[in-house]
Every structure is written in C-alpha cells, then in structure tokens.
Design a protein around this nucleic acid. Structure first.
Lengths: 148, 148
DNA sequence: GTAAACCCTAGATGACGCTCTAGGGCAACC
DNA sequence: GGTTGCCCTAGAGCGTCATCTAGGGTTTAC
C-alpha cells in the first residue's frame, strides 16, 4: 500500500506544495518514485514524515532537519550523532517552553489588571504618568487627547 | 531622563535596526522625538516596549501588536478591546504550549530509544522494515547500503 | 481519442521579520 | 573648522518558509 502526494497532504495537513518543497529541500530522500516518476509514500515514510513535522513544529530549521534525516538514511551507525542532534534540540525546546511560560505570566498579569474593576483607573494613571515623563523632558506628547 | 536608541538597544537586546523597523511598523507611536528629531525613550516607553517584546516573543504578528499598541494609545476606553486581544493571544500561547509539550514527548521517546542498549537493533529493524515496504511495492530502495 | 483529474519540474512570487546601505544632519571636542 | 560618533530616512537586500505558475506527462473513464 502506498499513498499519493494528495493523500499524504490530507493525512498530514501539509499542503502538496509544502510536501514537494520539503522533498526539494532534501527532507524526504526516503520517498521512492513509481514507474511514472510519481512519489509513492509508504506507511514507514509517513512515520518518518511525522517525526519531521515534530521537529519542524518545535522550531527546528529545515537545514537541521535535513541533517537528522541524512543520519536516519545512514542507518544504525549514525545513532550517536542523532542522539546528539535531538538532545541539542531538546534543550532548545526546554528554553522555548521556559520563555513562553515567563511571557505568558506577564500577559496574564496584564489581563488581571484589565479584568479588575479599577482597570480604567490604573490604566488612566499609567497613561498620565507616561505623558508626565514626556512633558518633564520637554518632549511632544504623542498621545491623543482623551476625555473620559 | 531619556534614552537614545543605542542605549535602548543595549538594554533590550533588540538591534538598532529592529527598533527603527518596529517604529516604522507603527509599534512605537508613543516614542517622542527631541528637538533634533532623535528618538527619546522614557522609562514608561521601555515598559511598553517590554510588553511589545512579550507579545512578539510569544509569536504575535507585528500587525496584531500594532493593533494592541493602538489601543494603548487610545487610553482606558480601549480596555475591553485590549482584554479581548490579549485573551485571544493567551489561548494561542496555551495551544502553542500544548503542541510543544506533545512534540517534546515524541522527541523524548526517540531519545529513549537512542539511549537504549539495543538502539542499534531497533533502528536496524525499522530500517529493514521500511526497505521491505519499498520492495513489496516494487519501488526502488532509496537507502544506501549499510553493512554493520 | 478526448476530457478530467491526477502527477511532475523549474522557477517565480509572496509573506514575514529583520538587516544593511546610501546619503545626510547634529553635537562635542580638539 | 574638521574629525568622531552619534542620530535620521528611504529604500534595497536577505533568510526562511511556503505558495503559486507555466509547461508538460499519466491514468481513468467515457
């Protein structure tokens, strides 16, 4: 059983364009062609493609995914290198998660203010303060006049 | 006290180019100019810039950050809209986190295999299986010959 | 045998977020 | 007043990823 590029597109959510682009970028060297030169994806190919999507969706660059895929093509003797690549990427993901968490907390703080009954008062005071800073430094006030 | 673009660059880690680019994109309408036309950042401006970085670093598009900043410029009466924008973005971040976590788990599974003492055996079997799929479908074998 | 619905490649185009260049002004110091 | 080191704008260029176009082959069904 093999799958056409259209079927794979539907199964993965990647567009046909993207699949062909990945192939052109050297991400799919394991996909064979049939007698007409059409790509024929096997189930094993789909699993590998899934791994590629995992890496891509966690921010790995195509260049680095290509390197990982090249390792896979080389067979078991590339395991140390694969391990090294994935461990480095794992650390990158952990850093991403930590940064996301920090930024989320700051955004949540903003939301808490906006949801507070005195939000308008707090925001108004901040606005006044930043405008005061400008005038204290003889700078033009870039804020529109607000009367509320 | 105000800060030059160079100082702000050093304080934030954003390049001078990026700061000017953000200004050009309408992200810094609150930054005043001094008598010479130079940008003069106040402490309040830096706080706002920090919020902008939070949004950018969590994947918000410049277009959407511009919209949020425009709200800030409008004062307290834009609070409902700001709340709406941030809540939508909050959900986007939560989705990102969930996806990241799922993908990390898959990568960790790969790493567990690679760190196992029978890694070579497992990987070799996977390779054999995917090659068998190809030949079963009369497809060329895209894998290099490996003898180890 | 022809129409419809696939598939292919090469290369252009686009979106996005910067980054850099060219040309020029301002401020301070020797 | 010249040099140094900032600052400015407009617009070109770039890296990355993805999408689309043009031109053409294949397969299936009528």
């Amino acid at each position: 059983m093999t799958y056409s590029i259209k079927t794979v597109s539907q199964k993965t959510g990647l567009s046909i364009y993207t699949l062909r682009f990945y192939d052109k970028q050297g991400l799919l060297p394991f996909v064979s062609r049939d007698a007409s030169g059409y790509r024929a994806f096997t189930d094993g190919d789909l699993q590998l493609l899934h791994t590629i999507c995992c890496l891509k969706d966690t921010g790995m660059k195509i260049r680095d995914i290509r390197e990982y895929v090249a390792c896979v093509m080389k067979g078991p003797r590339s395991i140390p290198q694969r391990k090294h690549l994935l461990q480095a990427h794992r650390h990158a993901i952990l850093a991403q998660q930590a940064a996301l968490q920090r930024n989320l907390q700051e955004i949540d703080m903003k939301l808490i203010i906006y949801e507070s009954p005195v939000a308008a008062k707090i925001v108004g005071q901040e606005l006044t303060a930043i405008q005061a800073e400008k005038t204290a430094n003889h700078l033009p006030n870039p804020f529109q006049e607000v009367n509320d």
